[in-house]
């Protein structure tokens, strides 16, 4: 069997464009899903029952269904029921943001709840105001606890962006699938795609491990 790796080199600019889209989707989704997750987390902790319930249903629903299906649903169903026409990229972004916001909200909720009430009481007893106690005692520890989970979510998000290729968003995987169809150099193109994903993802996975070690909370 003969291999012809020149197709990979000839397609280097296409691969680069794909990587650009993958990185853009990852960064944009996380940038929107952090505020989204915070809002959901506060809604779940808010003192109104119907609001709690609505936020909880949203979170549970997006956590218990496959992301591919959410993307298909946003692509084929959203235009029909809401009568809005969005580009494939915007649709993909909506699907990803809803999904990751749901996961982030659980992370934030756990982070806020993990700080024992005694710490706030102690801060108040030391003469701090409620705001000071929140800012100086609770939030720094909560951030430290949330960071490792957020980092893990970041890496799964980076991997999950590949699923937007099912609605023809030109990310790294879609570009490779298209190049495979155009050139018939299946093994070369798919291997190049896998290697590129590895080169991008492996350092991130290692960084996450480091963050987990670095921010391990000991009270």
């Amino acid at each position: 069997m003969s291999f012809d790796w020149s197709v990979v080199w000839d397609g280097r600019y296409l691969f680069l464009q794909g990587i650009e889209m993958t990185v853009f989707l990852t960064v944009a989704t996380m940038a929107l899903a952090i505020p989204g997750g915070l809002v959901l987390a506060f809604l779940r902790l808010a003192p109104w029952r119907p609001v709690n319930w609505a936020a909880a249903s949203f979170v549970e629903f997006f956590r218990a269904t496959p992301l591919v299906l959410q993307i298909y649903w946003a692509y084929y169903v959203l235009p029909v029921i809401a009568d809005i026409r969005l580009s494939a990229v915007a649709t993909a972004l909506i699907g990803l943001v809803c999904n990751i916001s749901a996961f982030n909200s659980e992370t934030f909720r756990a982070g806020i709840k993990s700080i024992r009430q005694g710490q706030v009481n102690a801060a108040l007893a030391l003469g701090m105001s409620r705001l000071q106690a929140m800012r100086e005692v609770v939030l720094p520890q909560a951030t430290m606890r949330v960071l490792p989970s957020l980092a893990s979510t970041w890496v799964s998000l980076f991997k999950d962006t590949s699923l937007v290729s099912v609605i023809a968003v030109a990310d790294l995987s879609y570009v490779a699938f298209k190049m495979r169809a155009d050139t018939y150099r299946i093994l070369e193109v798919l291997t190049a795609m896998a290697v590129l994903y590895w080169l991008l993802g492996y350092p991130q996975a290692k960084l996450v491990d480091w963050i987990h070690r670095r921010f391990k909370v000991t009270e």
Partner: peptide
């Protein structure tokens, strides 16, 4: 490696 590469990529490959 498995943690770094998307499932879709492993599957298609």
């Amino acid at each position: 490696t498995m943690r770094a590469v998307p499932v879709l990529v492993i599957l298609v490959w």
